[in-house]
Design a protein around this nucleic acid. Sequence first.
DNA 1: CACCGGTACTTGACACTGTCAAGTTCGAAC
DNA 2: GTTCGAACTTGACAGTGTCAAGTACCGGTG
Lengths: 240, 240
Amino acid sequence: MSVPGSPIAPKPPRRRHHGDLRRALVLAGLEAIEELGVAALTIRGLARRLGVSHAAPAHHFPDKLALLSAVASEGFRRFETALREEARAGATPRQRMQRIGRAYVRFALDHPATFRVMFGRELADCSQATSELQQASASAYAVLQETAEAAAGSREAGEVHAFAGWALVHGAALLYLDGALRPRLPADSAGRAAFEELVDAVLSRGPPAARRGSGGRAQKREAEANGPPPRRLPRKRASS
Amino acid sequence: MSVPGSPIAPKPPRRRHHGDLRRALVLAGLEAIEELGVAALTIRGLARRLGVSHAAPAHHFPDKLALLSAVASEGFRRFETALREEARAGATPRQRMQRIGRAYVRFALDHPATFRVMFGRELADCSQATSELQQASASAYAVLQETAEAAAGSREAGEVHAFAGWALVHGAALLYLDGALRPRLPADSAGRAAFEELVDAVLSRGPPAARRGSGGRAQKREAEANGPPPRRLPRKRASS
DNA sequence: CACCGGTACTTGACACTGTCAAGTTCGAAC
DNA sequence: GTTCGAACTTGACAGTGTCAAGTACCGGTG
């Protein structure tokens, strides 16, 4: 089904009306998604925005999912860049791990719609066909895993390590984005700040299973050395 | 805008063709979503399935998002039931917490499309209008929080506790559902089993931040008492 | 230079969607 | 038995993704 060889940029674009319509579609798609959400992204709308006919995009992407997949791949590339930059800025493996976690959440909060497309359901069902997306995604995860292995010391511990950290920041970001915390945290900028503090606290202290009764002193000490203690979640409002 | 009073079931249904078309729409919507995914859910399709005209649903839900919201609320109610049952079966608070975590992941894996609708983006943007959904969601989260408070001993520790555990299982479930682990874990039943073992391991051992060098002995002992050690993630396949 | 093949794009059409406006039918209250 | 309103139908509209056929333009070849 798939031709062997380098999957990206197999042929130089012919650049007719827009220089490179394919690239323009991906970039405009990213913009449109961030502005209005995924549901507002239409092929015809993109075509109008770029000044081409409504069927022009079909010559670069067989269907809408393929276009979404290309948009998500671009998102993953930017995501990976952000993570790598942050990892490079950390001194110790442990610091790098925490910085990556924060950068992960920050990216999700800064580009919510892109993040959801990257990890969204639509692509999971059909992504077997788009190796570009799989590769971009795996490459981003590799940043986490490399850092986790260095922080954990061993390879196998690093794998569980990386998965747990990944799941933690991923879930936290999505819970915030999806509004699941909204009854407790407002969606405004103050709510975001409180949320990021909370994530910091969890990243420093470690989640519940490790915090049972005995032996919490060292953790607490380190938490205070790594950042401010978390502000408590505000109580739910009494009335709407 | 909104009428005061009890938001749920304010009036008994008049039962014309389908006894209770509103309820039938929600149930058929749940089924259709689980069978074919959210993208395949259309108002007209539901109407055909129930043998009514294409505009009949509009008399019960002002638009498609309202219907999706009702479906998600029903999902949350079933979700909460599953969590509560599991929590009741645990002896100690800590056992309850682990059981809830496992039940959380199991629900997501058993009803992937419903789970994604429940926590999906579409509803986050408009859910200010549907108090039913907010209430159902908060009620499910309350199970987690109550258990976490009991396990943590104090109220404020319980909040961070609950959030961390929530984010962990939520993120893990979504990463699996979205296929982000697919290069490492196959999507078949063996992959699922390996994934559930992995989650168990993380729930027992605690995530990375708590597992740095010193003081890991008690954690290891408890991990072994709580379940089998995690099978290592299989190496990535060499070729597709 | 003319010619020509193929790519990038356009035009037009189709089936499908969600949503609205107006008409119809039926249950129950008076 | 009549009336009234809710539940439902019919018909229409704009908008969508996708396909088939046609057109313009660039590169190379004679």
